[in-house]
Amino acid sequence: MKLTVNKGLSLVLLVIAASYLFMAYNLPEYAFVPVDADLIPKLLGFALVILSICFFFSKDIDTEEQKKKRVIKKKEAGMLLGVMVLILLYITVLEVVGFVIMTAAFIIVCTRFLGYQNWIATISTAVIFSVGAYALFNYGLAIRLPAGILPF
């Protein structure tokens, strides 16, 4: 039997519910309150179990429109993944390299990657935005963003 999208999803949700419940049952006990920390999580876990079972047997209402949303061309999927990798890179090295450099670099690389050709507009926006935001936060709002390898 081939699973429909909704049936597959409900199985995934069931697994989430089960692991959540497992953790809820393993919460440490605290003796001096009438209702302990595990009550609500247990209720939530069971609620999700029931809901995913209902969902499994519910009339499949996966419309054409939704199906269309899920169909992504390979190249487009690559785009999404690419931007995600860029974001992860940004996060990982933000505190080391510093805000100004990373932000400017991100804006330039990401914009270029998404296919915008105007270098001048991109670079000037990137520089103005990153320096401006840094100045605003550090000096205007006294919120310190990572300076990184730059001396200020």
Binding site: L86, V93, G148
Partner: peptide
């Protein structure tokens, strides 16, 4: 990407 991943590997090694 390859270039950037290499860059990332180099950079994670050092901190302030």
């Amino acid at each position: 990407f390859v270039l950037m991943i290499i860059g990332l590997l180099l950079l994670t090694g050092c901190t302030m």
